[in-house]
Design a binder for these strands. Structure first.
Length: 138
RNA sequence: CUACAAGCCCGAUCCAUCGCACCCAUGCUGUAAUGGUAGGGGUGAGGAAAGUCCGGACAGUAUAGAGCAACCUACCGGUUAAGCGCCGGCUUCUUACAACGGUAAGAAAGAGAAAGUGCCACAGAAAAUAACUAUCUCAAUUCGUUGAGAAAAAGGUGAAAAUGUGAGGUAAGAGCUCACGGCUACAAAUGGUAACAUAGGUAGCGGGUAAACCUUGGGUACUGUAAUGCCAUGUAUAGGAUCGUUUGAGGGCUGCUCGCUCAAGAUCCAGGGUAGGCAGCAAGAUCGGCAUAGUAAUGUGCCGGCCAGAUAAAUGAUGGAUUUGAAACAGAAUCCGGCUUACGAGGUUUGUAGUUUU
RNA sequence: GGUCUUGUAGUUCAAUGGAUAGAAUAGAAGUUUCCUAAACUUUAGAUCCCAGUUCGAUCCUGGGCGAGACCA
C-alpha cells in the first residue's frame, strides 16, 4: 500500500451483516471517551494482496434523534479515521493479522473536528498497543 | 418612507487540497469463471426529503352470498387518477363601519334535538311531566285559618325559564281571541344546474346538548416494497405430545353468526440450517417554457430536457474570499397528489395605519 | 420503512364533563426523645403544549411535542 494515501474505499469498509453480528457478540471492546471500539482479529494471511483491515463507524440513535446529526458524526469519524489510519495498517501488516474494527460514538454532545481528531489519535494508539500485546501473549 | 398582517418567489456563491456513491469509456495485469489495479469524464439529496394525518399507483392474498357488529363521512356545484385536498357559490355567526336591513373582513366537524333514551353541577318554586309559594271564587270558621274548585299568567336565581310586543277578554287569569313579528313542518309558484332566495297559503309553538348514545343518507375486503417473484448456499424425509383423514382436524390474513368452499394433514415442545445475489428500483397522473379554454381550482396543445439511486446505507473535511454574522429548519430508502408542523436572510404583490413633499 | 399504545404532585397510581384535582410515599416545619428511628400534627407541591365543542374540559375532538412497545 502506498504511504500517504488517505482513501477510505469500499473494500476497506466493514460490510457484511454477519461479520457485524459476530463482532458485537464475540469481539473485544474498550473505551476511550467518547469513542467505544469493538474489534476482532484472525491470523489469516492467504490473501496478501487483499487488505487486512476492515473498519466501520456508527452512532446510537438514542443520543442523537436527528438523522442529520448522526450523518455528520459518522462523516467526521470516517474523515478522521482515513487521515490517521496508517499506523494501524502498518502494525496489522507487521503482525500479519486480519482485523475488524467498529468505532461507536458514545458522547452526548456534538463533536467538532478538532476534538474528534484528538480522540481518534488516542484510540488508535491504544488499539495498536493492544494488538502488539496480544501477539506477544501468543 | 416607516410599521403591521396576509400571499408568492429563493433556500448562499467561488477557489485550492484530500475524500465518498453510481454511471461511462480507456490502459496494464490475472483466472476455468467472477476479477485486481491506474488515471480520466459525467451525475449526485429537500421546501419541507419530517410528521404518517388523508388519497392513490403498484404488489400479494382473498372474493356465491346474507345478517349483526366495527370504522369513516355529512350545505351545494365544479375540479381531479383519487381525496377529510383545492376552487367558486349558499346559509349562519362574529367584528368593524353604517343606520332600516346594508357594506367590508374573518370563521364554520354546516344532515337530524318536531323518532327515542340519557345528562344539564351550584343557585332557583321549577331544568321540561308535574308539584310548591302567592292569586281568584265558593263553603265552613274558634276570625288564626281549613276544605273544595279555577287557572297555569307572577315568584329576586341561573349559561339557559316555556314564541316577543300591544289590545281585547275574564271572578282572577291564560295564544283564550285579534293585530304586527319570530320559528317549524307541508304542498305548490317565480328565479337559480343546485344549496338557496323571493312574496304568499295551510297546520302548529315542541329549551340546550348529537366533538353523549343514537337516527337517516353515502361509503369501507385485508395486508403493505422488510410487499412480491427468481437464483444460489445449507440442514434433519430425524425426535416427543395432542387432534384428525368423509363420523372432516384445519384453512379461506378485521371480529361474531349462518352459509359456501378447499381439504390430509394441522398445532405445540425441543433442536438443526440459511440470512448471499438479481429483479421490484428510477421516463414519470415527469420537469421547464410558450400558447389557449375557464371567474378560479384545473384542463388541452406545441417545443425542449432526462434530473440521486444506496443496502451499516453516498454530498463531507480543512484553509481562503464575498455577502450580513466564516446562515435557519433539516438528510432520499418503492413512487406520486395534498394537508400539517419546523425555519433563515432578502425580494415582491395586496391591504391597513402613520409621517413628509407636491 | 411500517403498525400501535400512552402522557396527572419529586415517584407510584386515582378521578362519571361540575374545580378547593385525591391517596400512598418522598420533602419542609413542629410535638415526643438524652439523641436517632417510629408515631402524631401542620405545610408546600401537579393535569405535556396550542386551538375547538360545551354554560363549564384532566375527561370529548383536531394539531403539535415527548415517552414506550411490536413487525424480518
Amino acid at each position: 500500500m502506498p504511504a500517504g494515501k488517505n482513501s477510505y474505499a469500499r473494500n476497506e469498509k466493514l460490510k457484511s451483516r454477519k461479520a457485524l453480528e459476530q463482532l458485537f457478540s464475540k469481539g473485544k471492546t474498550f473505551l476511550v471517551f467518547p469513542v467505544k471500539v469493538f474489534y476482532t482479529t484472525q491470523n489469516l494471511q492467504l490473501n496478501p494482496i487483499e487488505n487486512g483491515v476492515h473498519a466501520g463507524v456508527g452512532v446510537s440513535s438514542r443520543n442523537f434523534k436527528k438523522a442529520v446529526q448522526r450523518n455528520t458524526i459518522k462523516r467526521l469519524l470516517r474523515e478522521v479515521y482515513r487521515t490517521q489510519k496508517h499506523d494501524l495498517h502498518l502494525s496489522a501488516q507487521n503482525n500479519s493479522l486480519q482485523l475488524q474494527v467498529f468505532f461507536l460514538y458514545i458522547g452526548k454532545e456534538m463533536p467538532t473536528h478538532n476534538t474528534m481528531q484528538e480522540a481518534m489519535k488516542n484510540t488508535l494508539e491504544k488499539l495498536c498497543e493492544k494488538l502488539e500485546k496480544s501477539i506477544i501473549k501468543n
